[in-house]
Design a protein around this nucleic acid. Sequence first.
DNA 1: AACAATGTACTATAATATAGAACAATGCAC
DNA 2: GTGCATTGTTCTATATTATAGTACATTGTT
Lengths: 262, 262
Amino acid sequence: MLSKSKVNVIQSVSRAIQIIRCFENYEELGVTEISKMAGLHKSTAFGLIATLEANKLIEKNEHTGKYRLGLELFRLGTKVNSTLRHITVPYLEQLVKMYQETVNLVVIDDLSVIYLEKVESKRSMNISTMVGGRLPLYCTAVGKAIMAGLPSNELNNKLERMEFRKYTNNTASDKNSIMKSLELIRSKGYAEDNEELEIGLSCIAAPIYNHFNIPFAAISLSGPTSRMSEHLRKEISVTLMNYTREISMKLGCNKFKEESKW
Amino acid sequence: MLSKSKVNVIQSVSRAIQIIRCFENYEELGVTEISKMAGLHKSTAFGLIATLEANKLIEKNEHTGKYRLGLELFRLGTKVNSTLRHITVPYLEQLVKMYQETVNLVVIDDLSVIYLEKVESKRSMNISTMVGGRLPLYCTAVGKAIMAGLPSNELNNKLERMEFRKYTNNTASDKNSIMKSLELIRSKGYAEDNEELEIGLSCIAAPIYNHFNIPFAAISLSGPTSRMSEHLRKEISVTLMNYTREISMKLGCNKFKEESKW
DNA sequence: AACAATGTACTATAATATAGAACAATGCAC
DNA sequence: GTGCATTGTTCTATATTATAGTACATTGTT
């Protein structure tokens, strides 16, 4: 036995998940291929594969005899964060109508944001984000918008573990510069990305709060810097903050109700 | 032991998948709730849950102590049929630009189609299809477009097992009426749904072929019947067929190359 | 404050996943 | 077309592992 990274995990289940992960970079795989990739006995892999197939998480291509990811996996994936997505998508569509730029919904996942939804404008430039994709917190407007509202201990814990990479000259490259920009974001209520990830690409984002008043998601609008005048950015930021306030309240957040009381 | 629906399935893996399915209708569940729903011992459920959590397929909400579906499940779901989706989405976006109606990509799954992608127009009416959702083959344009090109034995096998339900007065309600309409679809190369699923909703679809020249997916354009003039429908059908021909060829289908030879 | 319900840890045992071997089916080379 | 190599699949014995019982910790409720 090689290594048992964590105790109390059920071997066969972890192995089955490992098999699913084999398909991340390959559309079709055979039993032997899978067993080699996963370091499993051919016979063991076969049993796990048969189980995944019986549950439609993978499918057998009857023509090639090979396996591929199954529709049940897709369907189950659509159930993840479904409340948030159902509430938010109409706002995204409204934003595209208003500004004709690409808009996104993300959630935080440790040191990254994961893109849950994207609605593209007709005239959108091809932006390098993909639904299901992941980008670092520190160089995206959405990431910074979320970070700005985190409890300080949680924020510090994250900042300590970050590894900075300079995507462009504008990318923040250390903890201090991030902390400074978060300060500004807190006072404004929204975040901007001025070509910090990609030259020519600007982005404005506002955070979504859960019912513990903690930000965990964000929506953003991205477009070519050339179209993002100072005036327009201001206008967009107001709209975003109005929308995220509504979304947060629908999620049970009472942060804004309290504000109106006082 | 109650029932073992299939031999050669690994119990713990099937149980883990069963636990994931518990979250289809519930956003958050606790250990005890899950164990009751799945008919498992609390302690058994706990081990499976811990394993799923370690693999990020479910996540623990630290505030409530309950579990929810994890982002890794979402991410893996986005890998399903990724080639087809990457090739097709640009065509969907082009269609929306041209006709300003909602367009869809589906794949066949036994007696249903599953919606993989949807691109909505600004002026789209709210149509009751959802990404990840499922509709019967016999009452959708996409379903009929695919059926029309299936090998006859496979088609018959499906028709035998179908249970017809009359969604509207236009819904086909038996095998013969479907077979007749498939005949027409074969000669035209595309399928239509004239309020067969929902009154007021019309739909046009064309099939996508895999590299065995078998249709397995389809794209469609849906809109209110009032906007779908005979002339426009004809034009849309031509565009759809051009696009699906291109998509099919990119997938390695040589059906159309052969045609041009002769 | 007492109770109930839930999440978590530990352990013995029975049940089950595992890997080996052997066979079948397929594809490839010559 | 024949033989070889590779892959998919079945079967079985064994030892590993998942399981459920018990007990404890933690939380929330009345």
